[in-house]
Structures are given as structure tokens and as C-alpha cells.
């Protein structure tokens, strides 16, 4: 009889436990749905709001005092050029640093400092990079509020991302690959050049794309270095009308997020519509890059089985 009561008791306990299980699973799904919903509402709101403005003219017009005529020509060109500088600086530096740390670095205090430093940099607020750039690039080096300053700033900002991605990709390569190459008499650099880098390239590429996607959406550090918000011209084309090959890097500029910020902070509703449209383009750019990276990583996991 007592035994009977006890089993009935346990049944009740299990039933209660399972109810909590279901309840929690439901809450978990709601939280996830909440995230998904945010993405959808966000993109949807900007898309709908800016729909009227999303025409070819929007992409080929300069900003204007009249909202209906304003476009993002200087902004998207600026973003592309800044990304070019960023990639040009961050890719060799990041990959080189990653290769050094994985393949060359000895286990000593110098290496420890570099490693701790990289993890720490990854968590420094982006606006602090802006202050660094303001002090060093803009004034110390005299680059001013130019594409070069912006590109280098963002390069430093995404350096940790590229380094970490490079290291992870390299670490996934089995040690036997290195030994195989070295056993054939290759030097360390030849091993890196002909084996390590090619095999880890997809992973590194993923990291670079994610880093650039992050850079293209960054606003704060670029505001800090004094990017202008109203630019009605494009940087000089190389070798045209007497311009040098690299004159464009010293040109004043604006970028997509700054253009959007500028329009968002205007009180007139017409500019808010422009902000929505610009935001939509910006999100499509970053999400497109992220999607590319995610796809690349997914494919990579499927293809390579060591």
C-alpha cells in the first residue's frame, strides 16, 4: 500500500517535471522567434519605408537638401573604397599574424603577450579605435579625414577577427600534412606557402568576409575621424584629369552608415524615408556578406574530411 502511494507520487513528480520541460522548450522557441522576428521587422520596416526611394536614381544621385532628390552615390562609392583600403591592410596583416602565431611562434612570454593582446583588442569598443585614429592617423600622420584614415582604422578594428579565423583554419589542418611536406625537404615557409595557406584558404576567406561585413557597418570610429556627412562629389579617378594613381585615398568621403545616420538624425520625415532606404541597402550588403561567409563555411565543412 505504501509502495503504491510512492509510485503514484513519482508519477506525479515526473508529470510535473515534463510539464516544465515543455514550458521551457516553448519559452526557448519564443525567445528564438523573438530574434527572428526582430530581424524580419527591422528589414521589413526599412524595406517598406524606403521602397519608394529604392530606384536607380537613389544609387546614382548625390545627397541633397531636398530629400526626394537625395541619393547614396557618394556613400556607396565611399564604402567600397574604404573597404578596399581595409582589405588591403587587414588581409596581409591578419593572415601573416595568424600564420606566425600558429606556425612559427615559440611558447614564450612574447607570444603570450601577443595572444592576450589580440583577445583584448577584440573587445575594445569601436569608438576607442576612432579615438586612436583621430590621434595617430588624422593628426600624427596627417592623413586627415580621408579614405586612407578610415580604411586603416577599420583594418585595425577587424584585425582580431581575421587573425582568429586564420588561426582556427590553420589549426584544423592535421600535423601529418606539415610533417609530410617537411619530410620531402621543404622549408618551413615552403610548407606554409604550398600547403598550409592553400588548405586553410576557405576558412581564412570566411573570416575575412565576416570581418569586412563588420567593417562596412561600422559608424562610430568613422564619425570620430571626422568623415563628412555631406559629400556631393566622388574621389578623383586614378590617372584622370591629372590625378595620380593613389590620389583617391586622400580624398574626403562619406560611407553608407554615416549617410544613414545623417538622415536618421534629421527631423523631416522625408529624410527618415531616405534613412530607411539607405538602411535597407546597408543591411542587404552586410547580410549578403554574412550569408556568403556562412555558406562558405557550411560548404567547407561538407567538403573537407581529414
Amino acid at each position: 500500500m505504501v509502495q503504491q502511494d510512492k509510485t503514484a507520487d513519482i508519477h506525479a513528480v515526473i508529470r510535473r517535471g515534463k510539464r516544465w520541460d515543455y514550458l521551457f522548450a516553448a519559452i526557448g522557441l519564443i525567445c528564438l522567434a523573438f530574434g527572428l522576428l526582430t530581424v524580419l521587422v527591422l528589414v521589413g520596416k526599412m524595406g517598406l519605408e524606403g521602397l519608394d526611394r529604392l530606384s536607380l536614381d537613389f544609387f546614382t544621385s548625390y545627397p541633397s537638401r531636398r530629400a526626394a532628390n537625395a541619393g547614396i552615390l557618394s556613400a556607396w562609392v565611399g564604402s567600397v573604397l574604404v573597404m578596399l583600403v581595409t582589405a588591403f591592410a587587414a588581409v596581409p596583416l591578419g593572415v601573416g599574424a595568424g600564420v606566425y602565431l600558429e606556425e612559427y611562434a615559440k611558447k614564450n612570454w612574447v607570444t603570450d603577450i601577443i595572444e592576450i593582446n589580440i583577445t583584448n583588442l577584440a573587445a575594445v569598443p569601436s569608438i576607442v579605435y576612432g579615438l586612436l585614429a583621430l590621434g595617430i592617423f588624422v593628426y600624427q600622420f596627417g592623413f586627415g579625414g580621408s579614405i586612407l584614415s578610415a580604411g586603416l582604422t577599420l583594418a585595425l578594428l577587424i584585425l582580431p577577427i581575421v587573425i582568429v579565423a586564420t588561426r582556427e583554419a590553420i589549426r584544423a589542418i592535421p600535423g601529418a600534412m606539415r610533417e609530410g611536406s617537411m619530410a620531402l625537404g621543404a622549408t618551413k615557409w615552403q610548407t606554409v606557402r604550398y600547403h598550409i595557406l592553400p588548405y586553410s584558404m576557405p576558412g581564412i576567406l570566411t573570416g575575412i568576409i565576416i570581418g569586412l561585413a563588420r567593417a562596412i557597418g561600422e559608424t562610430a570610429p568613422i564619425i570620430t575621424i571626422g568623415a563628412l556627412t555631406f559629400i556631393a562629389f566622388l574621389p578623383p579617378l586614378p590617372l584622370v584629369e591629372g590625378a595620380g594613381l593613389f590620389d583617391w585615398v586622400m580624398s574626403p568621403f562619406t560611407v553608407m552608415p554615416i549617410q544613414m545616420f545623417n538622415w536618421t538624425s534629421r527631423p523631416e520625415e522625408a529624410f527618415q524615408i531616405n534613412a530607411g532606404a539607405a538602411g535597407f541597402v546597408l543591411v542587404v550588403m552586410t547580410l549578403g556578406m554574412n550569408a556568403l561567409a556562412i555558406w562558405l563555411r557550411y560548404r567547407l565543412r561538407k567538403n573537407i574530411k581529414w
Binding site: G35, L42, A213, M260, T264, G276
Partner: peptide, 19 residues
């Protein structure tokens, strides 16, 4: 999806907050 959420530029989130 979460990664996408984390990859959205913060200025866009600002617009979202305001609008």
C-alpha cells in the same frame, strides 16, 4: 539567424529603436 542578428550594423539598430 542569431549570427545574422549579431551582424546587423548598429546604426540600423539605432534607426529601429527610434522609428
Amino acid at each position: 539567424i542569431l549570427e545574422v542578428l549579431g551582424g546587423i550594423p548598429t546604426i540600423v539598430f539605432g534607426y529601429f529603436a527610434l522609428m
